[in-house]
């Protein structure tokens, strides 16, 4: 039975314990791009202020496998205002674009349903990067391979839950059997709708074949930077291949015609001289 996580953003406080727990468990370094080096004190100094609410992580990356989004929605007179938080990570799609694209089979799905990159097999070809509809997977300059959330592969195969779920103080992130998580999510959605949260929705039942890490959002997925109609690139393969081939043929045909015409014009000009 697949395991996954349910992220109930309605009780997320944006504390980022999940981000730190992930780094701690996976021994991930700080993101080098976020620091400069102070030669006098011989220390790294963080310089990554983004001005984007309280989110200075900016995007998921090779060393940032979790990232909390901060979405401020305030009317000018402040009569309506809310601040939404959402802890973003790999969604371990049932139909995973990255897994489909990987030419070496480095990206696999384990028996627990999570999508895992085998570091010793990855050749760093980067085909997986544009194949992910969520921009999750990233190349590390240091290792020459790609990285993303593993769903704490080592923990979950040893009877433990994910580090982020364990650290989350409010229970916003919960780990377990996807089927159980879905019933809990359905109950919570019904409760919120009953309390008047009309826009609340579950994201991840249908997307990319179903997401093993799925969300309860309080606004449309678009507000959280998530695609509303997710297309795993491989699903479009027949169409995009046809378009590409047809395009190539058209371009090639046009080139042939154009060169032939030019060739006969030159001949004509030569004759005229």
């Amino acid at each position: 039975m697949p395991k996954g996580m349910f992220v109930d953003t309605s009780i997320c406080t944006g504390c980022k314990a999940c981000q730190v727990a992930c780094k701690e468990w996976n021994a991930l370094p700080h993101e080098p791009g976020h620091f400069r080096f102070d030669p006098v004190e011989k220390r790294p100094v963080a310089v990554n202020f983004t001005g984007d609410s309280y989110d200075n992580t900016g995007a998921l990356g090779a060393t940032d496998w979790r990232r909390v989004r901060f979405i401020e929605q305030f009317s000018e007179d402040r009569s309506r205002g809310r601040w939404l938080f959402s802890s973003d990570s790999c969604k371990h799609c049932n139909d995973a674009g990255c897994l489909n694209a990987c030419p070496t089979g480095a990206i696999v799905r384990t028996g627990l349903g999570n999508v895992f990159i085998r570091q010793d097999v990855c050749i760093g070809c980067k085909y997986c990067i544009p194949s992910c509809p969520y921009g999750v997977i990233s190349l590390s300059e240091a290792t020459g391979t790609v990285h993303k959330c593993t769903l704490c592969n080592d923990r979950i195969h040893n009877g433990l839950g994910t580090a982020c779920a364990k650290a989350c103080p409010t229970g916003s992130i919960s780990f377990g059997e996807v089927a159980d998580l879905r019933s809990a999510a359905d109950k919570r959605l019904a409760q919120l709708k009953g309390l008047g949260y009309g826009e609340a929705n579950i994201y991840g039942y249908k997307e990319a074949g179903g997401l093993n890490v799925f969300y309860l959002f309080l606004d449309r997925p678009q507000a959280y930077g998530q695609a509303e109609s997710v297309v795993v690139p491989q699903k479009r393969l027949p169409v995009s291949s046809s378009v590409a081939i047809a395009g190539a043929l058209a371009l090639g045909g046009a080139a042939l015609v154009s060169f032939r015409e030019r060739g006969s014009r030159e001949e004509n000009e030569e004759v005229k001289k």
């Binding site: 620091f35 790294p44 990554n48």
Partner: peptide, 24 residues
Amino acid sequence: TEHHLTGAMSRWLPWLAELMPELF
């Protein structure tokens, strides 16, 4: 949340420093 008081316990840890890097 990301820092503690004068930062003596938090501003020295890169994981916390990169969450809230600069005074704003």
